[in-house]
Design a protein around this nucleic acid. Structure first.
Lengths: 178, 178
DNA sequence: CAGCATACGGAGCTAAGATTCCGTTTGTCA
DNA sequence: TGACAAACGGAATCTTAGCTCCGTATGCTG
């Protein structure tokens, strides 16, 4: 199972049951005795790792500086999926695939991140219409750089551009007073 | 072939040869008489549509305002892949999959977009380290919103954030004179 | 119209990969 | 040690989808 994770990290959902079993040093039958279907196995691995997001966000919430807190969640989340193709796909498709049992973890993540965002908004360091949904959207974008441009474009650069992009628009005095 | 495009737009590379043939009102054999393999068929369709990017960029180059020109390429490119899952994947993976015969179109696109970027940089409306590679990277990100959050997050919002993000960083006088 | 060529259709072949099933091994209890 | 149970392994099965092949239809030429 933990060996399956290595393969999942390398090949994503394409990872083959035979190979997973071989890597784990067991027969295919044994794998199926633990997980009724391949999907169940994938789900278990994703749920397992998805947990990390909530932990990352929770840790980041301790950061005093509001902007730094938000940037930390984003960076750490990206780092968490780095080098794990399966996890990258899981993050990007987290709302289109209905992975069983991930709902609650997602709820926790949403709650924490929403608080972090609100704090940044209140501090005026992030555009006041920035939402948790936006967070998922831009993280998906940053992850797409890892997934689709491996060894090419640098996702940290994408992150930097994004972080810059979610800052409040520059307003002149007239607009602000209006 | 044009009917294959509809299926490709809906299902991406998952589109099945049987269905493509049926949709076209011909037998599978006939499809294979025109395209030796499925990949050849997909390549032909992608090459066909990829052409549009170069056209879009070329048209946008006429725009006088440098920032507007760049934003137009980005928006039009995104609009071009909207609603076409196959094309979305093609755009995102354009540099990992080696689609035959796309190289030259990509070269044209690179040349035109690079000029547009340079103009924007020279006008000081875009960060001066923004490159064509960055362009591909952020477009991939925006496209990922369409692909992974269909009916969910709004890619135009992602575009707006990105456009904001590639602006030059705000510098105070001291930094500028340094 | 006969003969030939070209293009078509789609049943069937093949490969790949998930899943099943049963003979075998391992472990436990008396 | 013998009997039973639980877990294992992996060959065989099933399914899907790309691709091939050959009998047939269409069309052209003399």
């Amino acid at each position: 199972m933990s060996s399956g994770r290595e393969l999942f990290a390398r090949d994503g959902p394409e990872a083959q049951m035979d190979e997973i079993a071989a890597r784990a040093g067991v027969g295919i039958g044994t794998v199926y005795r633990h997980f009724p279907t391949k999907e169940a196995l994938l789900t278990a691995m994703v749920r397992d790792r998805f947990q990390e997001f909530a932990e990352i966000a929770t840790l980041a919430e301790d950061t005093i500086d509001p902007r730094h807190a938000l940037e930390t969640v984003m960076r750490r989340s990206a780092e968490a999926v780095e080098g794990d193709v399966g996890f990258q796909l899981a993050m990007m498709g987290s709302n289109q695939l209905e992975w069983e049992g991930i709902e609650e973890q997602k709820a926790v993540l949403a709650a924490v991140v929403t608080r972090i965002i609100r704090r940044a908004v209140d501090a005026g360091v992030v555009s006041d219409d920035f939402t948790f949904e936006d967070f998922g959207m831009v993280m998906c974008g940053i992850t797409s750089t890892m997934y689709y441009k491996p060894g090419g474009a640098d996702w940290r650069r994408h992150l930097a551009i994004t972080v810059h992009g979610i800052r409040p628009p520059v307003r002149d005095v007239e607009q602000e007073s209006a």
